[in-house]
Amino acid sequence: MKFIVQWNGHPTVQQSAVERFMKTGGALPPDGIKMIGRWHSIGELSGCAIIESESTAPMAAWVLQWGDVFTFRISPALSDEELGAALGAHQAGQ
């Protein structure tokens, strides 16, 4: 299943977030998560990633690695095709 991961940094810890990112390269997610892509906002501590995972446990571990400097929002994601199939099934059931 795909997920949209969004994060926002706490302004008071910007320097430590920058240092950790530079040291780790952003620390790739743990086993069990395939990162499809990651993007960063310019001029602020925020961004988003699209990931794939069959379990929420690796997502929890990944968020905990950065939880002292970022807040996270993780939402299930559907492609156009997946959403179209769901909408079609819904309409057929009405």
Rank of each mutant, 00 (worst) to 15 (best):
L78F: 15
E19A: 14
S41R: 13
P11L: 03
Q14V: 09
T12F: 04
E81S: 15
Q6R: 11
I42D: 09
Q65T: 07
D80K: 12
E82L: 03
Q14W: 06
L64P: 02
G47H: 06
L64W: 08
P58G: 04
F21W: 07
Q65W: 05
Q15N: 07
A77I: 02
M59R: 01
T12M: 10
F21I: 06
T12I: 05
G84Q: 14
W39Q: 06
C48T: 10
S79A: 06
L87K: 07
Q14T: 13
A49Q: 01
F21H: 07
E82D: 14
I74V: 15
P76E: 13
N8F: 06
G32V: 05
P29Y: 12
T71K: 11
F72H: 11
T56D: 10
H10Y: 11
H90S: 14
K34M: 05
Q14N: 08
G84I: 05
N8E: 12
E82V: 02
H40K: 05
T12D: 13
L28Y: 10
A85E: 14
L28T: 14
I33D: 00
I51N: 02
V13R: 15
E82T: 04
I42L: 14
R20A: 14
A17L: 11
A77N: 02
S75E: 15
I50G: 00
S79F: 09
H10T: 04
S79I: 08
A49L: 05
E54S: 06
R20W: 11
H40L: 10
A60N: 10
D80M: 12
W66L: 13
S55R: 07
H90A: 15
S46M: 09
M1R: 13
G9T: 01
A61P: 02
L78K: 12
G47M: 08
G67N: 08
I4F: 12
S75L: 15
F72S: 03
S53E: 00
G93V: 03
P30E: 06
R20P: 04
P58Y: 04
W7R: 00
I36M: 09
W66M: 07
I50C: 01
V5T: 03
S75K: 10
Q15E: 12
L64N: 09
I33S: 00
A60I: 10
A49D: 05
A49H: 01
E81M: 11
I42C: 07
K23M: 06
E54W: 00
H90R: 14
E44L: 11
T56K: 04
Q91P: 01
L28R: 15
A60C: 08
C48V: 11
L45F: 02
L45W: 03
Q15W: 03
L87F: 10
I36P: 00
E54K: 01
A77L: 15
A86L: 13
G26T: 07
P11H: 01
P29D: 09
Q91G: 08
T71F: 07
P11Y: 01
P76I: 08
Q91T: 09
M35Q: 12
R20H: 08
I74H: 02
S16H: 05
R38I: 12
P30S: 09
P29I: 11
R38Q: 11
G93Q: 14
G37H: 01
